[in-house]
Design a binder for these strands. Structure first.
Lengths: 143, 143
DNA sequence: TCTTTTATTGAGACGGTTTATCAATTTCAA
DNA sequence: TTGAAATTGATAAACCGTCTCAATAAAAGA
């Protein structure tokens, strides 16, 4: 009865290919994961504590890493924690960041994205998402 | 006599402004830092162990963070570790990161860099450094 | 120079995050 | 239903980076 039929299918396909099993915990964690844009293991642990008080933190880590391998999630190290991004939510924008005043300008550039695809395929990669940050000085900060 | 006169000057200026002191350790770490494009604290620790076996890891962390504040370095979380990038180094390379197995491939692409400059100047920015990470699956992880 | 003040250092303790271990349990194909 | 194989939960362990603090070194003042 999940609303996430497509992702559930992708996960089951990955499980099948790797002789892994479909468990109650994996289903529970997938449902919770797909409801958000990104989450940390700790956040999910607390969030799921009500539904299943015995669900262990280690299982959450293992499962989120499994989602990464299955192409559903993307891990990003953010400060001291790891964020797991939901790949199916992708309103992706890049950032120009002023190192002087901290101002952030968002931008999108199709040409850059196209070149990224080229680089990736040349190296045998399939891109799920990317992160591009340009650091510099805005004109007020340059005087 | 250091070859890195400019950076040494920038560091001393920062120290002066903040009532910090110029120490033998800071000089040593700066010299080692400027020789590379990027380094982790742990790598530097081993690298400097011969020159000064008593140089502590904590001092290296403290000093690399100081370089960030002084605008000489840029920290970024990479896998489980923190990389300190040398801002003055030009041959900046970017990363393809496999979300399945964690493999990292470095690449450089002048066209992308040129487009970045365009985006920046269109927004009135002057780029000091950037960070581009492409996340996806490498071919073994894709099957 | 000598003294005084203040920042820095080294060593290890510490805290938070993630992974490894392992016996018990669950899944799933036969 | 059975049995091999994967998974789980609990917790120990590993790991990275920061904090603590007494001892030391650097700058400023006399």
């Amino acid at each position: 009865m999940s609303k996430h039929v497509k992702e559930m299918g992708a996960l089951k396909e990955h499980l099948g290919k790797h002789q892994l099993k479909f468990t109650r915990q994996r289903e529970l964690i997938l449902d919770a994961f797909l409801k958000q844009e990104h989450i940390t293991a700790e956040e999910m642990y607390h969030q799921l504590a009500r539904k299943d008080p015995h669900l262990g933190l280690a299982t959450i880590y293992r499962t989120l890493n499994l989602f990464c391998e299955a192409g559903l999630a993307q891990a990003r190290h953010f400060g001291t924690q790891t964020q797991y991004d939901n790949i199916s939510h992708k309103g992706h924008h890049d950032h120009l960041i002023c190192t002087g005043c901290g101002k952030i300008v968002e931008f999108e550039n199709c040409d850059i994205e196209r070149l990224q695809e080229e680089v990736a395929s040349r190296n045998g990669f399939t891109i799920q998402t990317h992160r591009l940050e340009l650091y510099g000085l805005c004109s007020p900060c340059r005087q």
